[in-house]
Design a protein around this nucleic acid. Sequence first.
DNA 1: GTCTATACAGCGATAGAC
DNA 2: GTCTATCGCTGTATAGAC
Lengths: 197, 197
Amino acid sequence: MAPSSATRPARERLLTAAGELFYESGIAATGVDAVLARAGVSPATMYAHFAGKDGLVAAYLEERHTTWRQTWDAVLAGYRDPVDRLLSVFDAVGRFRQQQGNRRGCAFLAAATELPPGHPGQRWLEADSRLLTGRLHELAVAAALPDPADVAATLLLCYDGALSGYARAATTPGLPGDDPVGRARRLAAGWIATRTG
Amino acid sequence: MAPSSATRPARERLLTAAGELFYESGIAATGVDAVLARAGVSPATMYAHFAGKDGLVAAYLEERHTTWRQTWDAVLAGYRDPVDRLLSVFDAVGRFRQQQGNRRGCAFLAAATELPPGHPGQRWLEADSRLLTGRLHELAVAAALPDPADVAATLLLCYDGALSGYARAATTPGLPGDDPVGRARRLAAGWIATRTG
DNA sequence: GTCTATACAGCGATAGAC
DNA sequence: GTCTATCGCTGTATAGAC
């Protein structure tokens, strides 16, 4: 089992705390103090591990990107049918949300609003967009669909729409339209069906 | 024509400056000083018109909500066909972006990430979601489509996906998939066609 | 590597005059 | 209504000891 919170290294505790607070409350609105308090780490220790708050933010986004890619990898490995593989992005995001206990929308799109142009975390926002479009494009080619770039862009649109649905639900409870990911998957599957026929 | 920047009242200049800076650089990352400098207004004047930064943020979101609704109203008035009226949300968002010179995604979804739970601006985030779902639901009923709630949720998903596309493009230039709103409109139109047949 | 204590800056907000 | 000047807090980052 996982080591107790007291024995885990400070760096890991910091990343866990940062992941929860940055995702839940926003990056700019979350002070370093709050991360330190939740991690049970002193300021000096944090600055020994990360290049300031910006470095911590970048490390948070990198870890999230890596975990998301691994989750998608694992889901993808379970599918052989080319269309199932294309639609696996929706199954993966469902599993990812369950694993992480996520309540809000896409952490990378949220960070895109908050980070200034030269921020070191920008790299991972680009990595997220390129992973999604690149892999969806490959899977569209493997499925022998016409215009794979259009397929990738349309599926990305469904993916973003689904995650935005969670962001709306978080601020406006009681909004109609549950299960955004399921709805996005059905929408994408129906659209693909019109292109394979 | 519009009065020169020097003669416009301080309140209007503040709202214009706030709209540009909050939307472009994020709410939490934008200091009151920056808004004051751009508007050419002194601190005391701002606090005479708004209840602090929170009040200014709420006024910014309210004005944006009103302008967006008016833009949609104007576009909607030009359509008679029920399906065109349903799809008018995409034409309206295209026009709104052109009017405002917007570069990023949805201001309300972005604010949803940044504002803390009790913030006075939260009201306008809810208003945005309810305007979209409520009106789309009405238009689906008017179009005599089955399961209007599902129609509204699916079109909202396309709408959010389109705006997220702009957010991605703003951070990752050179990303494939131009014209997210056009793509969303085609996707939605095709989906509706499968339900009317 | 990790802590306590502190320096320093930026920002939100106010006082008081005109 | 609007200005100049300034207060006080919050938050980032560092110094120095253990």
